[in-house]
């Protein structure tokens, strides 16, 4: 091998670099204050809820529930599509197959269990590990912190609720012999399921995080929430049927699983399969919506109070 020309060697030496330790540098850039702090806690909440940036174990639970919800919607779409193709146009409607207005009723328990198992992780871990103390000494109030976490989980639950509805909508559109006609006739289902999904997500998020604010262990919060939903459903249904009348209707209102489904019924203007037998459905829409708001806003206020400055 011939030696490189002298000029090339000089140029090569010229490209060599030296690393200097320039010591500590003061930060002179922008400081974006509370808005940036809230956004940071919000983004971190999304990552915790979906297990992003964490190990595989942290991802299993949230993605499993998302997959189950999507699978249910896929099955519903396939069945409706098959009915249309086998029975002719309008067959799915004639057979009264479940559709958008029924989905949240069918999936409500899965959404509640999802919120109960995943939601508490957003608050419990910070308090158990003491990270909350590092947040509260930054340009962030306790209310900022808990609202950012709440908003992050609301987004996650909303997405988990909307995704299957979207799959169902696309499936039903494509399964219809005349997809454009279907879209023209059913486009209103989209804003309806978005609004009903948001209502469902706000309710479950608030209850899950309120429960989480009372314990540092996710398992305790999850068991309490799942137990609460599981127990109130058969208990209130049985007692409401037994007692009957207005008292029975009010007992039926305490079925925690049905509270957001009644709102779903109000939004879609029809009773879903899950609330068909509930005596509470006879209440006027304003009462049903008011009851839902009470069960969402009062827990939200308690949650905010629990995280007033420096409290945890």
């Amino acid at each position: 091998m011939s030696a490189p020309p002298a000029g090339a060697a000089e140029a090569g030496r010229g490209r060599e670099g030296t690393v200097f330790d320039i010591g500590y540098q003061r930060y002179t850039g922008a400081r974006e204050g509370r808005a940036r702090a809230r956004m940071a806690v919000f983004k971190d909440g999304l990552r915790i809820a979906m297990g992003l940036g964490r190990g595989p174990r942290a991802k299993i639970l949230p993605w499993f529930f998302v997959a189950v919800l999507a699978f249910i919607a896929l099955i519903m779409a396939l069945v409706a599509g098959a009915a249309e193709r086998l029975g002719g146009p309008g067959a799915a409607q004639e057979m009264n197959l479940p559709s958008h207005s029924d989905f949240y009723g069918i999936a409500s328990m899965i959404l509640f269990v999802f919120a109960a198992l995943v939601g508490p992780e957003l608050l419990c871990r910070d308090r158990r590990e003491g990270v909350i103390h590092l947040y509260l000494v930054r340009p962030l109030t306790g209310a900022d912190y808990v609202f950012s976490r709440w908003a992050a989980f609301l987004v996650v639950v909303s997405a988990a609720a909307w995704l299957p509805q979207l799959i169902l909508f696309l499936g039903l559109s494509m399964g219809d012999p005349a997809p454009l006609d279907y879209l023209g006739q059913h486009w209103l289902d989209v804003p309806r399921f978005l609004l009903a999904g948001l209502a469902m997500a706000a309710y479950t998020t608030t209850l899950a995080l309120l429960t989480a604010s009372f314990t540092t262990r996710r398992a305790y919060a999850a068991v309490f929430l799942v137990g609460l939903f599981m127990i109130t459903t058969p208990f209130t249904a049985g007692a409401a049927q037994e007692i009957g009348g207005t008292a029975g209707q009010w007992i039926s209102m305490f079925n925690l699983t049905n509270i957001p489904v009644h709102v779903n019924d109000v939004i879609f203007g029809q009773v879903s399969e899950i609330t068909e037998e509930a005596p509470a459905r006879a209440f006027p829409p304003a009462v049903l919506v008011g009851w839902y708001l009470a069960w969402t806003l009062v827990p939200a206020a308690i949650l905010g109070w629990r995280y007033r400055r420096g409290a945890p």
Binding site: G29, R34, R36, Y135
Partner: peptide
């Protein structure tokens, strides 16, 4: 990185 953002840094 997260706590720097929570202190207001981009």
């Amino acid at each position: 990185t997260h706590l720097a953002e929570a202190s207001g840094l981009p």
